[in-house]
Design a protein around this nucleic acid. Structure first.
Lengths: 223, 223
DNA sequence: ACACAGTATACAGTATACAATAAACCGAAT
DNA sequence: ATTCGGTTTATTGTATACTGTATACTGTGT
């Protein structure tokens, strides 16, 4: 249980937050499970203080809930929650695309095209192994999110992405979805090329919603 | 300096966070000013631990910046920052309006109409005193934000509103703007009545952007 | 057998003490 | 006079100790 706590030089509380967050994402702790400070402190071999600060941070990120005098519990992530989060994500990434449209250089658009090509090739050859195109997908989105020039937006979306990682176990996007994603990415690129902010926003928004609809359908059929 | 610390039964750290946040909003601390833990602890008559936790929370809310081994400083809020924040706010409230459109009951729409009427009457009579219509304005927005049914969205917008309070000193919206706001609110209500999500989103978004444009112009002309 | 009260215990909330580090200051050497 | 290096000091990071409260448990009375 005693994981490598002393990794780098960033504050202990950050490392602890990372460890606990990862454990929540990996499902080490179940929904509603109590995170008891002395217990965590003992397991990680440190004192309670950094634990407490890490827990506050995780509360802010929405992973746990802290009840006064009762302590921290892992927050459940319901389908409704994810629905709500995806609606926000779709809108905000749409905004990012809108703001990025006028900023994107030809070079950056070339990068987008390149990523999407790689994405397509990989998905065709390795339909079963999603990890690699998953990363490409994230890269693709990050390009125009960064190009929006809106730092607050980048921060918010970055924070949200941690939450979506909690779904990663279910996120086994198969080739069918990947093929769609490639098509939708192409539409997005076209919107960027034609410098049409409205269209860029619309296509990105629809792309994200469509990804979630697909995923939700799979979750429901598995349940 | 020693304000009323012992107000209610919520954890000290919350009360401390409230106090410091209010002070930042009120401008007691200047941009870039260091918030030294022992000093705060002494002034508030408590130990450092709750102070530290309050500071972490305020960092998450974007009011301060904590540099490792250097401590906390009040984060500057530049025009660019506010620009970015307003773009996000406009987008998210637009989303709220969209989602609210199908949920809003006739009764709730009546409430919106009522608030806007009160807003109009008050603005006509008391053009100089903005506090009251400011509150009405917030109420108006909160109605459809809550009606969106998207709790995460409510949380995010609530958190952002604290940041916008930092602008409140400049937010002396005069009658000219209030008259415009009334008109725009009416458009929003009409969109709700006609159950048109796209239009609701669009009108709300434009309403917020327009408010910010007006405010920004005033800030620039004052500077 | 059940309900209630009293007690014990486990835990979060808070305070304080100690260690580590970075910035400021001072002095010496060039 | 200026720069480099060492020393001091201010301040954060971490650990531990103490306090108050909520919950669980146990026993007693009905």
């Amino acid at each position: 249980m005693n994981q490598d706590v002393f990794i780098e030089s960033k504050p202990l509380r950050e490392k602890i937050a990372d460890i606990i967050r990862t454990d929540i994402i990996k499902g080490v702790y179940r929904n509603g499970e109590r995170l008891v400070e002395p217990k965590l402190a003992k397991n990680l071999g440190i004192s309670r203080t950094p634990i407490r600060e890490a827990l506050r941070q995780l509360e802010g990120e929405g992973f746990i809930e802290i009840v006064p005098r009762r302590g921290a519990v892992v927050k459940e992530l319901t389908i409704k929650d994810i629905d709500d989060l995806y609606a926000i994500k779709a809108n905000l990434e749409g905004l990012a695309a809108r703001q990025a449209t006028l900023n994107l250089t030809g070079e950056q658009i070339e990068i987008l095209i390149g990523i999407n090509k790689k994405f397509r090739d990989y998905a065709e050859k390795n339909p079963g192994i999603p990890d690699e195109h998953h990363k490409d997908n994230i890269d693709f989105h990050n390009v125009f999110i960064a190009a929006s020039g809106n730092e607050k937006l980048v921060d918010i979306l970055d924070g949200m992405s941690k939450n979506f990682q909690r779904l990663k176990s279910m996120l086994m996007s198969d080739a069918g979805r990947a093929a769609n994603a490639v098509k939708e990415h192409k539409k997005i690129i076209d919107a960027f090329i034609s410098k049409d902010p409205d269209l860029a926003e619309k296509t990105v928004r629809e792309h994200i919603i469509s990804g979630w609809e697909y995923l939700k359908q799979r979750i429901n059929s598995n349940a």
